[in-house]
Design a protein around this nucleic acid. Structure first.
Lengths: 146, 146
DNA sequence: CTGCTTGCAAAGTGTTTGCAGGCCC
DNA sequence: GGGCCTGCAAACACTTTGCAAGCAG
């Protein structure tokens, strides 16, 4: 993911909301853009600290919150672990599954839960937000090791 | 759910594991058996306190853990909220979806994710544990209120 | 300059653990 | 009466918040 592009988009999106693109927020975006995966808040904090020492942990949380509200970042809840963060997809967000043994998060196709979503709407009037929580199970590697 | 029956089963299941059916554990089972829904640990603690005052919050957590290990209780992780507990189904556990706005948990058919589970196995070698996390979305009532 | 943001520290949830005494079986 | 379990208190992980100073635009 191109950091420059992400930051340019962020500047616009934030300004539209009367907010600002600051050092800590820039660093958070850079860390997320540089990472292939899904980072915990602590991992984002570590990454930010490497790039911009002195940024406080609380600012990382507040930055993630602001960037989420602006539609630039998404988070996924993973079982009993904390949330994981990643840049929001341009269009539709992909889905996630996580291993309850080793914690790894794998990406799934955006349409993997479409049938379930339709079923929930029809039978329960419930609107599914499929990308907001990770499905839980055991990954390939852990299955081998058991 | 019949409390007497549950407690009798629990006594056996625990003894098989070299563990004991104690006052606090009995109270936890009674509270879960008396509740139709899915309780947070705090709600279980409140219920236990009403039946058996003096039981410590930590004992409720430890009881829930022990009863889970013995296969008598199940828990579901609900988004950023804490876990919810309920008596384990006799056979296959039902699934859950929770409202990210009001927190209500609704039960789903045990086979609601079968197609997804098959897909995950085939494409990622991932074994889904469908009852362990609640799907997330907005419930009917909250949709009306938006 | 205006006021959104930050750093700091402290408080808040939800949950776990070490320890000495207590109770189940 | 042996050893699993409990109550207590403190620690824990993760996250949020009040406040005064700081920086973006």
């Amino acid at each position: 993911m191109d950091v420059e592009l992400v930051i340019a988009q962020a500047s616009l999106a934030l300004r539209e909301r009367g907010e600002r693109l600051t050092g800590p927020r820039r660093a958070v975006l850079a860390v997320l853009a540089a990472s292939p995966g899904h980072l915990s808040a602590e991992q984002v904090f570590d990454g930010v600290s490497a790039v911009a020492p002195g940024v406080h942990r609380a600012s990382v949380y507040r930055s993630l919150e602001a960037l989420t509200a602006a539609g630039l970042v998404s988070h996924v809840h993973v079982g009993h672990q904390g949330a994981r963060y990643h840049l929001a997809d341009a269009g539709r967000n992909h889905l996630h599954a996580s291993c309850q043994r080793c914690g790894v998060v794998i990406d799934l196709a955006p349409d993997a839960l479409d049938a379930v979503a339709a079923d929930l709407t029809a039978n329960h009037g419930f609107r599914l937000d499929p990308s907001h929580v990770a499905l839980s199970g055991i990954c390939r590697e852990c299955l081998k090791a058991m």
